[in-house]
């Protein structure tokens, strides 16, 4: 019987590894360990084994059974693996490009705008928005622009016909003409009229100038302006903001400087220069980047804020100009052509 068991095991070891299909395996399994299988038949012979030899023989049968089962399991695992593998094609060539389009890209103006908004949010500025079609009051009068100021000329500013009506752009006075805003400062006025100080907003947006389009001019472009109104706001605070913005954007070795200037809506007013290392294509030490100043008391008076109590500052800059500096882009028109070879460079 011992020999029979050995022979049985040897047969299984030889047969099981070469079984290629599941029915063959099931048949083999039945042949060995099924109710009518060979091992079962041998086990039935246990009754004929002398009593004293039974324990040893029982042990041997159990061992053989366990070994047989191990071989069966291995064969089954091998078959199953083969079946799963059969569901797959050949191995992929991972270096082939995906035929799906993509990835999508953000426009560089969006990237720069969002970066600025994130930087400003950290110091409490929220993003405000307002209409691009504006009225003379919000674009000029409220910003202390004299009635005969050249910026109001039809030569420099786009107007809509007197008959035009914009149901969701409010006029201050009925006779006002609609125009395309020349700066986002109109958002500051609307925000101040709508709310109460303290106010801390950043207003990025599209603005329009009646200008010839060339490498540095565009009939519409984007500005980003900050307005902060609170008690005891000082020139020094304004300088601190500008230092913070550009250090955040360009690194700790970035410097800003103020040059006195003139704007109707701020007093004192400054132009802001920037000095930073590693800006592509910048050769000068100082580059003009924007304008700023302390909100003029006349502007506060116009929105009904008491300038004895409230003080504030405003800062504005061109987003295209900033993007051009940061990325080293030399033609503003590229922003509006949307050549994919351009768009793909930034995201």
């Amino acid at each position: 019987m011992q020999d029979q068991l050995s022979a049985l095991l040897a047969k299984a070891v030889a047969e099981l590894p070469v079984i290629a299909a599941r029915p063959d395996f099931e048949a083999a399994k039945a042949r060995y360990v099924g109710p009518n299988g060979e091992l079962t038949a041998l086990m039935k012979q246990m009754g004929a084994v002398p009593k004293e030899a039974r324990p040893a023989m029982g042990k041997l049968i159990n061992e053989t059974k366990a070994q047989l089962q191990t071989h069966l399991d291995a064969a089954l695992a091998r078959l199953e693996a083969g079946e799963l593998a059969a569901q797959l094609g050949p191995a992929v060539d991972a270096t082939l490009p995906s035929p799906d389009a993509g990835p999508g890209t953000y426009h560089p103006l969006t990237l720069v705008r969002e970066e600025m908004c994130r930087i400003l949010r950290k110091v409490g500025f929220t993003v405000a928005d307002g209409p691009e079609v504006e009225t003379e009051y919000y674009c000029f009068d409220a910003l202390n622009t004299p009635a005969d100021h050249p910026a109001r000329d039809a030569q420099d500013t786009f107007y809509l016909p007197e008959s035009a009506r914009f149901a969701n752009v409010t006029k201050k006075t009925p006779g006002e003409k609609y125009l395309l805003r020349t700066h986002t400062s109109s958002v500051q006025i609307r925000t101040m009229l709508k709310g109460e100080p303290p106010i801390r907003i950043v207003s990025p947006g599209r603005v329009y100038r009646r200008d010839t389009t060339d490498a540095t001019h565009s009939a519409n472009f984007h500005q980003l302006e900050c307005l902060y109104v609170d008690k005891n706001v000082t020139v020094r605070d304004l300088k601190a903001l500008l230092d913070y913005i550009f250090e955040s954007l360009l690194g700790k070795d970035t410097k800003t400087r103020f040059r006195p200037h003139y704007f109707g809506y701020t007093e004192p007013s400054f132009e802001v220069d920037l000095s930073a290392k590693h800006l592509p294509k910048v050769k000068k030490e100082w580059i003009e980047i924007g304008g700023c100043g302390m909100v003029d008391p006349a502007v506060f008076a116009g929105v009904g804020y008491d300038s004895e109590v409230w003080t504030g500052y405003a800062f504005g800059m061109g987003l295209e100009r900033l993007a051009m500096l940061l990325y080293g882009i030399d033609d503003i028109r590229y922003f509006y052509q949307n050549d994919l070879r351009f768009l793909k460079q930034f995201a």
Binding site: A101, G104, Y106, L109, T126, V127, D129, L340, L343, A347
Partner: peptide
């Protein structure tokens, strides 16, 4: 800190969605 303007938030979400769906964001003249 307050909330950003609803239009700004909408534009931001829409752009994120579209860029996430393989669109290239453009800026064209008004």
């Amino acid at each position: 800190v307050g909330d950003d303007d609803p239009v700004v938030r909408f534009n931001r979400r829409a752009t994120d969605y579209l860029v996430g769906h393989d669109f290239h964001e453009c800026v064209n003249y008004t």
